[in-house]
């Protein structure tokens, strides 16, 4: 009676523990082999940057820096103060205009406002607090905070309680978990290549902003996307089972 309204599922305990084991193994692998993983990432980014024609050198050292480091030749010139003022005025105006103009949907307003404010804060930081020195060589280091290894642990820890517990074939859950992890690895390679290339082409200010915005924000998009695909697949499996049972 009222089965649909009070329907609940039986928790898939075996699948949950399998998922937990995968998560623990993965986290341990990353914890104990993090540096080797960065070296591999750095070599892949090195190849991508060479393919794109971005001039750079890669230093791999576990002693001096925190991780593999890219050295880029940059013809850096500090931004003139008047240009900074103009840029601040333009960004602030953009934030205000976006707020006032009624035709713009709220999500676009939110993104425009946040990006404007982040750009203003980064510009102020660059100009007044910690300007990037006018060296001809700059360095980008891969360490555990920007290499994306946190996301790999995050994906397993999210998917295990929210996906592996739900009714459905284990292979579907494991498949989508590894698809998400694989995509994360590929995306992080592309992201680090893009960000490093940004430093080369556009300088420090854009690099800082781009690096911050392309961080956790984009990761959430694909984590949720693959989760929804996995859930849809499980839902289809459940529906197929119901048809077989009725037949």
């Amino acid at each position: 009676m009222h089965a649909q309204y009070s329907r609940s599922l039986r928790i898939q305990k075996v699948h949950f523990f399998v998922g937990l084991a995968i998560s623990l193994v993965f986290t341990s692998l990353i914890a104990f082999n993090g540096f080797n993983f960065w070296i591999w990432q750095a070599s892949m980014v090195d190849w991508l940057l060479s393919f794109a024609g971005v001039s750079h050198k890669l230093f791999i050292s576990s002693g001096v820096a925190k991780g593999p480091t890219f050295e880029m030749p940059i013809n850096f010139r500090p931004i003139p103060f008047t240009t900074v003022i103009v840029l601040l005025f333009v960004l602030a105006s953009l934030a205000v205009i976006v707020n006032i103009f009624r035709g713009i949907p709220p999500p676009v307003k939110a993104v425009s406002f946040v990006v404007s404010i982040l750009a203003i804060l980064t510009l102020l930081w660059q100009t007044m607090v910690s300007p990037i020195p006018a060296y001809t060589l700059h360095w980008v280091t891969l360490d555990w905070s920007c290499s994306g290894v946190i996301n790999l642990c995050l994906i397993t820890l999210i998917y295990v309680p929210f996906l592996f517990t739900i009714k459905g074939p284990l292979w579907v859950k494991v498949f989508w978990l590894f698809v998400a992890i694989g995509f994360s690895i590929v995306w992080n390679l592309l992201r680090m290549s893009l960000v490093t290339a940004t430093l080369y082409y556009f300088g420090g200010l854009v690099f800082l902003l781009f690096h911050y915005i392309l961080g956790a924000f984009i990761d959430f998009v694909y984590i949720v996307t693959f989760y929804s695909l996995a859930l849809a697949h499980l839902s289809k499996s459940e529906a197929s089972e119901a048809i077989k049972f009725d037949a």
Binding site: R7, A110, V221, T225
Partner: peptide, 21 residues
């Protein structure tokens, strides 16, 4: 999933748009 609305599950990433709003 409980409501068995598979097509709507595909739209889950768009909830991010709602979050921004």
């Amino acid at each position: 999933f409980l409501d068995q609305r598979r097509r709507s599950i595909w739209l889950l990433p768009l909830v991010l748009v709602n979050l921004l709003a």
